[in-house]
């Protein structure tokens, strides 16, 4: 099919576009005032957006977040919780395993335990890389410790977000973290609520193919 490549590119190259199009200017975000959002305002906006799409927001501190998580697990009647053992947050949870439902880890490639992942896990806990206040969004860069399907397959996703990693806009997050310079991961994700659809009569229904519930613990 290299012919197709040559043909397409040569057709495109033959068409000379005379006019230089207007150059994109750096994106300024949606509101001028956004520059002034302090942490409290970012938390307020983030919470407002997330709750508007039925995500649950819990506030916690570095000293009591495990209590908050334990409460959430209890309230939801979880039988088990998928948690990475190697991450900072995950290892803290595993260290107090007796306070939580049966803890599961994602030790092996998906192929070896797909059935349990799909049909046997009640909830997964993950950290986040950051958040976006403007849209109420979690930024995830899944990796070997917290694979992509953790935030996708189990019916409940519990995510921990540190408020000092809450950016105002997506553009700002990308720039501040130097995504281009760092290089993009296998998969970068923005998650802004539980899975939903409005495909029937434009009526919102939650929990289509991804998690039915998204729980965010803000630390």
């Amino acid at each position: 099919m290299s012919n197709a490549r040559t043909n397409i590119l040569s057709r495109l190259c033959q068409s000379s576009i005379q006019e230089t199009p207007p150059q994109p200017s750096p994106y300024q975000g949606r509101e001028q005032e956004k520059d002034d959002w302090d942490t409290a305002e970012r938390v307020r906006r983030f919470t407002e957006r997330m709750e508007a799409v039925r995500a649950e927001i819990h506030h916690a501190s570095r000293t009591d977040w495990l209590d908050v998580l334990a409460e959430i697990c209890k309230a939801k009647g979880l039988n088990n919780l998928l948690v990475a053992a190697e991450t900072e947050w995950g290892s803290a949870i595993h260290a107090q395993a007796q306070r939580f439902p049966a803890l599961k880890t994602y030790q092996q490639p998906i192929e070896t335990w797909k059935s349990e992942l799909f049909y046997g896990i009640d909830a997964a806990f993950t950290g986040t890389r950051g958040g976006i206040a403007e849209t109420g969004t979690l930024i995830l860069w899944p990796d070997a410790h917290e694979p992509r399907t953790m935030s996708l397959v189990p019916p409940i996703h519990i995510a921990l977000l540190e408020t000092d990693k809450l950016y105002t806009t997506f553009a700002e997050a990308m720039q501040a973290e130097g995504w281009v310079e760092t290089g993009m991961p296998t998969n970068a994700l923005l998650v802004s609520g539980p899975s939903k659809s409005a495909d029937i009569e434009q009526t919102l229904a939650y929990g289509v193919h991804g998690p039915k519930e998204l729980v965010v613990i803000l630390v």
Binding site: Q108, A144, L189, S192, S195
Partner: peptide, 19 residues
């Protein structure tokens, strides 16, 4: 304001990744 998921894919599974 944004969709639930924005999925940015830059490579297949890398060695060590589990899915």
């Amino acid at each position: 304001p944004i969709t639930t998921y924005f999925n940015m894919i830059s490579s297949p599974r890398k060695p060590g990744e589990k899915d």
